[in-house]
């Protein structure tokens, strides 16, 4: 099953590698990983998406919680949560397709970040499935030249806040 794991950790060299190592050491592939500093600059938040056996993942989470740099870790999968992802994609543009690309981008709540006579660079956000759908539809009429996806970021829905239990 797909798991979305949120981790708060000290913003230290090596901390990210240690957490990632807990998964790679078991041969688990990390599908996506986003990490950035939070509103507290000493703390980073990491969202990790992986697929695997529930019991094994529960064990990895328990063992990751022992890492000295880790402040809190939670599997958001089974809780109500919000997911979002960012896509930046560069497509080929011709005089025939440019209007259609602009319309499509507008309709799918995207932004045009950059344009040249032969390319358009677009940005879309939303759940991973939504982003994938956007990409498929876009690629159907505008050849994709390159793209970067941020990977999933996630938060609990509602009042629940992931924070160090004190």
């Amino acid at each position: 099953m797909r798991h979305i794991i949120a981790i708060l950790m000290q913003n230290e060299a090596g901390a990210l590698a240690r957490v990632a190592g807990m998964f790679s050491a078991r041969g688990y592939n990390i599908e996506s990983l986003t990490v950035a500093t939070t509103h507290d600059p000493s703390i980073s938040r990491l969202t990790l998406v992986t697929t695997g056996d529930d019991a094994v993942i529960a064990q990895i989470i328990n063992q990751s919680r022992k890492l000295v740099d880790v402040l809190e870790i939670a599997d958001l999968t089974s809780r109500e949560h919000l997911e979002s992802e960012l896509l930046i994609v560069k497509v080929a543009s011709t005089p025939e397709t440019s209007t259609r690309i602009a319309d499509f981008t507008h309709r799918r709540y995207g932004i045009t970040l950059d344009e040249t006579p032969s390319t358009r660079t677009l940005q879309f956000t939303g759940r991973g499935a939504h982003i994938s759908g956007v990409l498929d539809d876009l690629a159907a009429f505008a050849p994709v030249l390159e793209l970067a996806r941020s990977g999933t970021a996630a938060l609990d829905r509602g009042d629940l806040v992931l924070a160090l239990q004190d």
């Binding site: 950790m9 000290q10 022992k66 000295v68 740099d69 880790v70 402040l71 160090l164 239990q165």
Partner: peptide, 12 residues
Amino acid sequence: LAIPGYRARLRA
């Protein structure tokens, strides 16, 4: 060093 996560878990 501040190791707040470790110390909080230890204290608990």
